[in-house]
Amino acid sequence: MSKVSSSAAPAAPSPATPSRLATLLRDGWPVVLVAVIAIAGWYLLTATVYAGKGYLVPSPQEVAAAVAENAGVLLVATLTTLKEATFGYLLAIVGGISLAAVLSQSKLLERSIYPYAVLLQTVPVVAVAPLIVLWFGYNDLSVVIISLIMSLFPIVNNTLLGLRSTSRNLIELFALHNKSRVTAFWKLQLPGALPHIIGGLRISAGLSVIGAIVGEFIIGSGNAQGGLGVQIVFAQGRMYTALLFAEVIAATLLGFFFFMIVSAIGNRLLKNWHESAVGH
């Protein structure tokens, strides 16, 4: 009889897992490519059509020089706007989700209060901002309130939509097992509404920065302690277009920073079960 070998066959080599750096380079090159093309087009535009007209459209070199010359002011202004937008955004998250949770439990409350939430969104903030300043003063609190107003409605609307989208069969199943409305809310409605909530938070992320800058437009006067909105007005008054471009870019990147943080948190919460985040 032949002797059967007891040694196991060698396992097939597992495919190499790409490193995080390789994945980042693979996924990020289209963004970098578009940025390079945009900057190159900007440079060509300032070198041809707007040659010698830096007061209208400054070149990338002039903007970089303005950033280097005013780095301290830009840093203070960005941090100030970041603080104001963050407080307004956090208040909008707490208030928006709480309001939507209450409205989702009563059709009467929803019909009574939701139209006013819509009105809050449709009222021009620029028209309301002077009243807010009159009531709360020329301070950071007024800016935070304006940021809150700008970013509140998308959170309320999307959260309420998600809570209202819960399957009626599942709600009846919870009721069949004598589960309370509080249990059904925490165990069923809120988890199911999470994708809608994340969507509302993403929309409001940029709006909170816009609200903070609009508030600074109304409240601030040019000084080293003001936020980006204050410094934009100050640079415009001095006709310092290169610095104006730098401040607008900083405000844009700040809103993008907010959006990316919310997106990263949302993807982590949803990646194991929801199609919108699987594979991201």
Rank of each mutant, 00 (worst) to 15 (best):
F87A: 11
L109Y: 06
Q121E: 02
S276P: 00
L228P: 07
T183Y: 07
I203A: 06
V31C: 03
P154E: 00
T46K: 02
Q225H: 11
G95D: 02
E62T: 15
S112P: 04
G266A: 11
I149W: 05
G206S: 13
Y240F: 13
R238F: 05
L244T: 12
G211R: 08
V214T: 11
L74Y: 07
G206A: 15
K187I: 04
G215N: 03
V126G: 01
I155Y: 10
S19H: 00
I145M: 08
S167N: 13
P115M: 09
R168W: 04
S59F: 03
I261C: 07
A117S: 13
L163C: 08
P115W: 04
T81W: 04
F136W: 14
L82P: 13
I171L: 12
E62I: 08
L74A: 03
Y89S: 03
V128I: 14
H177C: 08
G96L: 05
G162A: 05
N157R: 10
G255C: 05
Y240V: 01
V102H: 02
G200H: 12
G266R: 13
V133M: 13
G96H: 02
P154A: 05
T80E: 04
H274S: 10
A277D: 08
L134I: 09
G229L: 07
E172P: 01
I132N: 01
K179M: 15
I198N: 00
S19Q: 02
V34R: 07
S208W: 01
S112Y: 06
I149H: 10
V4C: 04
V102I: 15
P130K: 06
L152N: 03
F136M: 07
L99W: 03
L228N: 05
F136G: 03
Q121I: 03
G215T: 05
Y114K: 06
L91A: 15
G72P: 06
I132T: 07
S180N: 00
I265G: 04
F256N: 10
L131W: 06
I93P: 02
S59R: 03
V76P: 01
T86E: 10
